[in-house]
Amino acid sequence: MDETILLAHGSGSRLSHELIEKNFLPPLANPLLAKLDDSAVFNFSGRLAFTTDSYVVNPIFFPGGDIGKLAVCGTINDLAMSGATPLYLSLSFIIEEGLTLGELNRIVASINAAAEESDVKIITGDTKVVNRGSADKLFINTSGIGIIPKGIDISGANARVGDRIILSGTIGDHGIAVMSQREGLKFSVSVQSDCAPLNKLVSQMLETSSRIHCLRDPTRGGLATTLNEFARQSEVGIVIEEEQIPVHDSVRAACELLGFDPLYVANEGKLVAVVACDDAEKVLAKMKQNHYGYNASIIGKVTDEHKGRVIMKTRMGASRIVDMLSGELLPRIC
């Protein structure tokens, strides 16, 4: 039988030390982490971006990723969407007793892979183990620090009339991939989570244009919610074209079946950029060269009409309001 995590692994005992030394340190090794002092200590200068997020995804393994990859990419992406170059992460585990060491090792390995891919170091961490039933297998919190290069000013409040809206690729992949694994909803779908670190894509975009006004990764609440946030924060209107929004066929099919609108389904490896009109094509071309942006598309523009609202031109030639996500996504019944 697989070795499992026991309450004793979180007690500060020899077992705790062994867990850290055997299961966390070797894959994540770097000089700052290896010191094992109470804090990681390092020098820093310039404008900082600092963010934190907790990850409670269920199931912890899903097509295209796992909770570890998600915890690294999610926090890296939050930094990148502020225009920051992510540097360091903290990593805090809350483990429900009974998680197997095999599962833990897989997750730590994918944390390491995601951190390496994005040139980010994990420099401090913590592990707690709680009684069965007090957590759902594994919760992870990551915080991240990044540095914002000079001259970069990105905010959801910066959209200007005439700007173009660029979406980096297909929407809804993550939400549908995770949903397909849930109890009571199991269905087989060929789509994988798009979970990915976007910091390199963002830095290429920022090198290409100094007039990227807003960046955001449309996670929970999906594309619709992100666009509504921009419209409200910047006090502008947004018009998008249904035709231009890329959606995988399998995601569309699953959405048809479940009664979801892909506009509201979560993404973990996509971004929305609001870019000055003159620079939009240039930024788009650069994005298309990146592995995480090859499906990018200009999906709409910023207007001075219907301030605070998002309007979509439908394929049929009508237009309708795209509101924020209301409540929880639930499967429909008939």
């Binding site: 609108d261 439908t314 394929r315 049929m316 030639g317 009508a318 237009s319 309708r320």
Partner: peptide, 9 residues
């Protein structure tokens, strides 16, 4: 009908 804006058409 609403999602596709059919009433407007």
């Amino acid at each position: 009908t609403m999602r596709n804006g059919i009433r407007q058409l």
